[in-house]
Design a protein around this nucleic acid. Structure first.
Lengths: 195, 195
DNA sequence: GTCTATAGGCAGATAGAC
DNA sequence: GTCTATCTGCCTATAGAC
């Protein structure tokens, strides 16, 4: 990887990921091709294969970067020092920001296509959800102890409800052309968990 | 359409729908081809095109049949005369039955691929969710009035939470290889709505 | 790193015989 | 209704020049 002279030019590899990420989040992994990226970026398909030899390599890089950024965002929420309820709201807002760009959660989209994915991509998708669940579990447990959150059952079970609700709300909001639907569901979810 | 001599033989058109339905629910609309159906059914691709000239025709027929059966199932729940809470549990069980066959909700899968679908298929998908929401709204409102269900906000908002939760739980359960995850989320959802 | 050119395969779809 | 044969186009991927 070569560092350009200007600090803010992205590098072709990164720009490929940027375009491909949007395509997968909108059309799915099976719904885009190298030709789509080629057209949007103005470089040939052959050049794309130089950076990502096979489509599966590109797909894996996509998930890895997405999961890394997600983990970073969760770390920022943690270091904010906010109460558990606010950290939970911050988590939901991460989903809201993606949807406001007209996109589905990358891993939610890939979850639908799971059975058609190459093995390494499958593993990366499941890891994403496991990491999410672990973070939520921690927040929920802390919120229960400090009295800012309340829920029945284990923190793990509640974490699964949160993930299901947010992913499902994103999934349905786009076809219904109703982004507010997501905000409404997320608000109901948070209200039900707030003490 | 010709009626066979034996009452229980399905007809090629129906058998095509049966196979295609499974393929879409497992692999997605963009994840299967006429060749897949051809192989599973032992007839040529050309024969498939006789029954469904274009893939979009097949896709539309798939949603229409699925939505019709879903509506029938909801009608059966209604005529059971059960209380609102039990009817809600029956609704969740419709999803559970699909997942136990290793499948995603047909329209949940198509919701993910929405941006790549032909217009008529898009409209059919949104209609499915609207019909579901209207039915749930009715049940929730009745449950609130007879005191078997409780929730904050409008019945419409609560209905959206139910759909989001169940679709999302299905979506995530398959990659995680954890069908019990769905049951757990559904149980939590119902518990939160039961008075 | 990016290009032109092309391979090899599979997609959806059609023509016409039976 | 189903078949064989074929078309056209797009897909992922590679070879080799620049």
């Amino acid at each position: 990887m070569t560092v350009g002279s200007a600090r803010d030019d992205a590098g072709t590899g990164t720009r490929i990921l940027d375009v491909a990420e949007g395509l997968v989040q909108v059309r799915g992994y099976n719904g885009f091709s190298y030709a789509d990226i080629s057209a949007k970026l103005g470089i040939t398909k052959a050049a794309l294969h130089y950076h990502y030899a096979a489509k599966a390599d590109l797909g894996l890089a996509l998930i890895t970067r997405y999961a890394g950024r997600f983990t970073e965002a969760l770390a920022r929420i943690d270091t904010s020092g906010a109460a558990a309820a606010a950290r939970l709201a911050g988590y939901a807002d991460l989903y809201g920001r993606v949807l406001r760009e007209g996109r589905m959660c990358l891993c939610g989209m890939l979850a639908a296509e799971y059975q058609t994915l190459p093995p390494l991509m499958r593993d990366a998708v499941t890891s994403f959800f496991e990491a999410s669940e672990r973070w939520l579990e921690k927040v929920l447990e802390e919120g229960r102890q400090d009295g800012t959150l309340r829920f029945a059952g284990t923190p793990g079970a509640a974490a699964q409800v949160v993930i299901a609700c947010l992913e499902g709300a994103m999934l349905v909001a786009r076809p219904q052309g109703d982004l507010y639907r997501f905000e409404s569901v997320a608000a109901s979810l948070l209200a039900g968990l707030t003490a």
